[in-house]
Structures are given as structure tokens and as C-alpha cells.
Design a protein around this nucleic acid. Structure first.
Lengths: 185, 185
DNA sequence: TCAACCCGTTTGGGTACCCAAACAAGAGGA
DNA sequence: TCCTCTTGTTTGGGTACCCAAACGGGTTGA
């Protein structure tokens, strides 16, 4: 096994952050420009300009007449995948391992673009299994079961699929509630 | 939180593999030369020569009169730490998440040098807790408890400490037994 | 109208990797 | 002795990032 499998990832650490930054800017303020991305990532406009040129050539990022950035379908899928992995991983580090939130965030951010899709799927199932069985609403079990089935049957669905997205979203919103509770204190 | 915390790791992915390669060569054949490292990593002698120059300057790698490589105390500590993280992570992916061994190996290898020491400690405890409670020999519990105590008390011991090493070794040897069982089939 | 500003891009420099190729030095075998 | 192999190093090229600085286009307030 070649140890440099490392660099044959779909996107680099840098590209991962460029893509998720654009996605988040679109959600937050409705548009994303080179300067916005640069500000968000803490690097210069020049660097972003060059990086995005590559991502545009690879068909992941698009641009309208007004220099407003967007993500292609493929770009969106990749950005969602990375975001999902970050959320899953952070949740595991925080909830299962009991690590402090900032450390969990940092470690999750470092590896979000490296772990394989299958690992993320397995992690989602694992976490979900261990969530408080208290409000075991049947729709949650349904999603996990559906996900398990698709993995078992080797059904190759583009990552992230619907089920894992739902699991990820639930994890994230429950984590947001927690931090809101903390703010209230 | 700056997303580029990424590159302020003690060692790069490349350096991590150079160090662990030397360590493994020393174990396996008693010595390690530039060519051996190059062969093991699948890169040219020239690249290794240049990389090791840097690691020598940083005091992680040493060289005797006969061009035989070795690791300084610090180099050994780092190499052991990385190796420990890889074993822990692989074990988690394989045993807890049920991922196939090769995928577990690959993902563990990608992130071994990125996850923080504290995460590794927490993971060790977590895995150990979930190991078959069957042969719950008291010395295992003892190590886990010692590790937990040191974390709780914020006792900053150089990573990896004695307890986590022991846990890691046990995980690795049990994993080797498994693959031996597999070969016998 | 024009200076001040924000934008995006380009360019030259720097770092950290990799490779291929050329070299010098030592170790044998013929 | 000479030829050949292996070894470690150096050098020039390439890629992927980053920055600082300069430049050209717009917008806007005075």
C-alpha cells in the first residue's frame, strides 16, 4: 500500500476549505465573491483568485457575469460531503470520546477531507446507534437501517446520500442547541 | 479558529513516514540507510537524502560513521507517537466501525500524524472500555485508570506515555493474531 | 470631475514536497 | 588493475500552496 495515497484525494485540504467557504457564504449572505472567500479563510485575495482558477477549470466552481461565485453540482456534492464528515467526526470526538469542543473541531477540520466515504457512513451508523435510546423515534432507525442496507448491498450512491445527510443534520442541530444552552448560562 | 492549524503540526505527513520507516527498519533488519528508507517509502534516494537533511538539522535523525541512520530520543518519541495513533485508529475503524482492514489501514495512515495527542488518549480509553469484558484482567483496567487519571489531572506527560503504549501494543498484537488466524484458514 | 476605495488578477518570491539525472566514493569480481 | 554495482549527494525541473505588491476597473462621495 503506497503511503502517498494521501495526495490522491478528490480535493486537497486547501480546496476543501475553498469549497465549503463558498457554500457557507452562499447560505449566510446569499452570494460569495473572491474577497469574501479570502476574508473567511484568512488568506489574500490573490491566493484565492489563483486557487479558484484551478477549481473553475476542474468544473467545481462557477462564476456569473457579476463575478459572483457558485458551486457546480459536483462542487456542491463535494462540499456537502466534506461538511458532513466534519460534523460526524466532531460529534464523535465530542460526544463519544468526551473531548472539548474546540479540540474536536480542530481535529475534525484537519481530517475531514481525508477520511473515506465508507468510513463516514460507518461512523454515522455507529454514532446513531449510541445516541440516547430515549427518544428512539422510528424514523431515525429507519434512516440508519436504510443506510446499512445500501452499504451491505454495495449500492454505490454518491456520497453523501440522503440518509447520511439526515443523520448529519440531526447531529449538527443537536450540537447547536447545546452551544445555545451554553450561551444562555 | 484558523483552518491552517493544519500545517503547524510537529511533523508533516512526509516526515512522519520517514521517521516511522527508520524505526521499523531498525526493528526489522537492525540498521537503516538512505536507500533502505527510499525503497520502503517508494521514493528516490535523492528525495530521502534531502528530507533527512532537514530532519537531521531538526535533531530528530542521527547518523553514525557508517552512514547508518538512527533516531534521537525526540525522534523516537515522535515515531512511537505516530505509530501508536495509527494502531489506535486502525483498531477503532476495524473493530468498532467494522470497516475492512485495508480501508482502515489506509484511513488511519492518512490521519495518524494529524490527530492531537489528547484525542489519541481518549480513543485508547474508549476502545479499551468496549473491548470484550470477558477477560477483564485487572491490569488492563489499571492502565486505563492510570491514563484517565493523568488526563483528568492535566498531568502533561510526553505523548505517548507508558499506559497508552501498553494499550496500543495489546491492540496491535491482538490484531496480528487475527490476521494470523486468517492466514491459517 | 476626481481622489479614495474596494475588487479581482497578475507577478515575483518563498516553502515543501516530488523526480530524473549526473557525480563521487567505496566494494567486489574478473 | 579495471569494470561494474551500490550508495549518498547535488542539481535543475515541476507542482501546490502561500504572500506582498502592483495594476486596471468600477463605485462613490466631495
Amino acid at each position: 500500500m503506497d503511503w502517498r495515497e494521501f495526495d490522491q484525494n478528490p480535493v486537497s485540504h486547501s480546496a476543501a476549505h475553498h469549497l465549503t467557504a463558498i457554500q457557507q457564504l452562499l447560505e449566510d449572505q446569499g452570494y460569495a465573491r473572491v474577497s469574501d472567500v479570502a476574508r473567511k479563510l484568512g488568506i489574500t485575495r490573490g491566493s484565492v483568485s489563483v486557487s479558484l482558477k484551478g477549481l473553475r477549470q476542474r468544473g467545481l466552481v462557477v462564476e456569473d457575469q457579476h463575478k459572483h461565485l457558485g458551486l457546480s453540482d459536483e462542487g456542491q456534492r463535494i462540499a456537502r460531503g466534506i461538511h458532513t464528515k466534519r460534523v460526524l467526526f466532531k460529534a464523535f470526538l465530542e460526544k463519544s470520546l468526551g473531548l472539548p469542543a474546540d479540540l474536536a473541531e480542530m481535529d475534525a477540520c484537519k481530517i475531514e477531507h481525508l477520511i473515506s466515504d465508507l468510513t463516514a457512513e460507518a461512523l454515522a451508523i455507529y454514532i446513531d446507534r449510541r445516541e440516547d435510546a430515549s427518544d428512539s423515534s422510528s424514523d431515525r432507525d429507519q434512516q440508519v437501517n436504510a443506510l446499512e442496507d445500501s452499504i451491505r448491498e454495495g449500492r454505490v450512491e454518491a456520497f453523501p446520500g440522503k440518509e447520511i445527510e439526515t443523520i448529519s443534520e440531526r447531529l449538527q442541530s443537536s450540537s447547536e442547541e447545546q452551544s445555545k444552552d451554553k450561551d444562555d448560562e
